[in-house]
Amino acid sequence: MVNAMIFAGGTGTRMKTSDIPKQFIEVDGKPIIIRTLENFSTHPEVDGIVISCLEAWIDELWKLIEKWKVAKVVDIVKGGSTGHESIHNGLVRVDEFTKPEDIVLICDGVRPVMSEQLISNCIKLAREYETAVPVTPSIDSVLWSDDGEHCSKALPRGSMYITQAPQGYTMRKIMGAHLEAERRGIVSPTSSSELLIELGQEIHIYIGERDNIKVTTPEDLLTLRSHYYYERYKSFAREELKYGLE
């Protein structure tokens, strides 16, 4: 069995919107969270979806799921005060109806652009290695600074990778990591992959997609809107070419 666990508990402070969380912002007529969910609901290998959401927005999300006819949503649970806590709450719910060897795909709710192949690769590699984290090679030089003002160390760009989502794990692997984190008092790792690394475990990485952006800032929102405008333009161009040839 394969399940997606989508965490959408953030308020979007870096998006600088005070009235609506970033995952509920509409882009090209559809909320970002719905676009993200559709990537999993339409994937033939995904059996179910659990969402961890801001408590005040759970009812609204159910309405949107019904409006846009998003399939496979099993439940929406209350998010936490951190991303890690939101993921934990969602995983606890998924754990109620899965087996240790089942696969869970953990993804933030603001990744609306990802291919079916990316998800398929994640599932395949998670089954093989118990962990599967998509990454893209860093194309920029990377500097190390403890205080954000002074730097005396450059990191080798060829060894630097940017993590993406979804991140795939067996339930045995990720739930074990969360239980161990509780035991050690680890409360706020940046991501599931970083949690495993902090616990001394190795993760399997694979090359992701540069188009698979995480919508975090107003600049990301502009990039996303440009993506859909371009997709519409390509569609119109194909139609014009088709009828022009006829």
Rank of each mutant, 00 (worst) to 15 (best):
E85M: 11
L118M: 06
I87R: 14
H84T: 02
G109M: 08
N121W: 11
T98P: 10
L105Y: 04
D102S: 11
D108A: 02
S81I: 15
G79C: 03
Q117H: 14
Q117E: 14
D108N: 00
I106G: 01
E85I: 13
K99E: 03
I119F: 10
H84Y: 06
L91N: 08
I119P: 13
G109N: 00
D108S: 01
L105S: 02
P100G: 08
R93N: 07
S120T: 13
F97S: 04
M114T: 04
V113S: 02
I103L: 14
L118C: 05
D95N: 08
G90K: 09
I119G: 12
P100W: 15
D102A: 09
D95T: 06
M114P: 01
G109F: 02
V110N: 15
I106L: 08
V92W: 11
T82R: 03
V110E: 15
L91Y: 09
V113R: 01
E96M: 11
H84S: 01
R93H: 13
I87P: 01
N89G: 02
V94H: 10
E96C: 07
P100I: 12
S120D: 13
I87M: 09
T82C: 05
V113C: 01
I103A: 14
H88N: 05
V94F: 05
I106M: 06
G109V: 08
G90M: 11
N121I: 12
H88G: 05
D95F: 08
K99Y: 05
E101N: 09
S115C: 13
I119C: 10
N89P: 02
I103Q: 13
L118H: 04
V113I: 09
C107E: 02
I119E: 11
G79M: 10
V92R: 12
K99R: 08
D108I: 03
F97D: 00
G90V: 10
I106K: 02
R111F: 01
S86F: 05
S86K: 04
Q117R: 15
D102N: 12
I87L: 15
H84V: 00
S120W: 08
I103R: 15
G90C: 07
G79Q: 07
V113H: 02
G80E: 07
G90F: 08
E116W: 10
V94Q: 08
C107F: 00
D102Y: 09
T82G: 02
L118W: 06
I103N: 14
R111E: 02
S115F: 09
